[in-house]
Simulated scan of single mutants.
Amino acid sequence: MAETTGQAFHDMARHKTRPGWGRATCTLALLSIVALAGCDKLTKDGGSDGPAALTGGAMNLAERDIEAPEVFSLTEPGLWDGRPSLGGVWVAHPTVTDPERVIIRNTANGKFVIGALFRRELENPGPALQVSSDAAEALGVLAGAPAPLSVIALRREEAPAPDATAITNFDAPEVIAATPLDPQPGTEAPAADPAPVATDLPAAAPATPEPAPAAPTSNLEKPFVQIGIFSIEANANETADRLRADGLSASVLAQNSQGKSFWRVVVGPAPTVADRSAVLDKIKALGFPDAYAVTN
């Protein structure tokens, strides 16, 4: 920075005899030197070498997923029977009482995925933990080859997050206000022609915004029906399109948990319990027997 300041003085001395260099040019050069000196102070006293101090430490609340082994936790071999299955990523076990959102890990290769947990109704030979085709693909489980799986329930938790408006304080250089200088004789800029003023123009009609469609509401605690959780967005969209073709209001919700992206397909909201029951019966008749009611 000192070399830059010296260079500015050198340029002043070398060019001071050129035509057009006068009081205005010297003043601008001096202002540049002061600004450079301030930059040098910023680097030494409050730049990236020093710790950042947060002011007004306001905190917001953000939701995140945490593992809840007290709700459900299971580690045992899981099996995919090799047949394609609907409903996205899921596992099923005979001991399950209520559907849960879970994290499924293949402890043999370290792969994991977010999916749904259901009660297994059919008793087939082999491991009790049954895996869907989408879950098997995400976890690297081969058809007919049991793999060691860990299944743990997930819960949403509110956690403090830094306020995005928090700022970092530094020792900022002193701000020097620029003062207009008298122009040198013969250098005055010509006066600009006044802008033409339009007359007798019709007043523009005020734009009327179109009202936004009212969002559907419901007083039910669980007004939506979840079809499945998908690790591949295209599969979720394909399932939603199939449901819409049958007259159901299906939505694809993109979410992220434990560093994994996944997509939930839900239908709703249903305004009444009777409507929700009718929707659930229709969804199961379309080949999604594990669909269940959810809050959102």
Rank of each mutant, 00 (worst) to 15 (best):
N109K: 05
A291W: 01
I66K: 12
A191W: 03
A159M: 12
G22I: 02
L61Q: 15
D182S: 09
F118N: 08
S261H: 11
V225E: 05
G110F: 06
T168Q: 12
N235Q: 13
A274V: 08
W263F: 15
N124L: 15
P194R: 14
A37H: 06
L61F: 07
T75Q: 15
L201M: 11
A52Q: 14
I152A: 02
N60A: 10
P211N: 00
S133Q: 02
G6S: 09
F72D: 07
S277H: 07
A62S: 13
T27C: 08
P202N: 04
H15V: 09
E63S: 13
G228M: 12
T75G: 05
P180N: 02
A62D: 09
D40L: 09
S251A: 12
V89S: 04
D246S: 14
R156N: 11
S150W: 04
A37M: 10
I33P: 13
G186W: 01
T4M: 11
N106R: 10
A153R: 07
F170H: 12
D281G: 11
F170Y: 06
D45C: 02
A135W: 02
G22A: 07
L86A: 14
D49R: 11
S218L: 04
S249Q: 05
P148S: 01
F230A: 03
I229Q: 02
K41D: 10
D163G: 14
T217I: 06
D134A: 14
P269S: 08
A62K: 08
A278Y: 07
A236L: 03
A116I: 01
R83L: 05
L142A: 15
V151F: 02
I167H: 13
L253K: 10
G6T: 03
L122E: 15
D182V: 11
A291R: 03
N219M: 10
T168N: 12
L31I: 12
N169Y: 11
K260R: 15
K284N: 07
A161Y: 03
S218W: 04
D241A: 11
A178L: 08
D65M: 10
A29W: 10
M12E: 00
D193R: 11
K222D: 13
S48T: 11
R64L: 06
A195C: 01
L154S: 04
P77Q: 06
R120S: 13
A203M: 09
S218G: 11
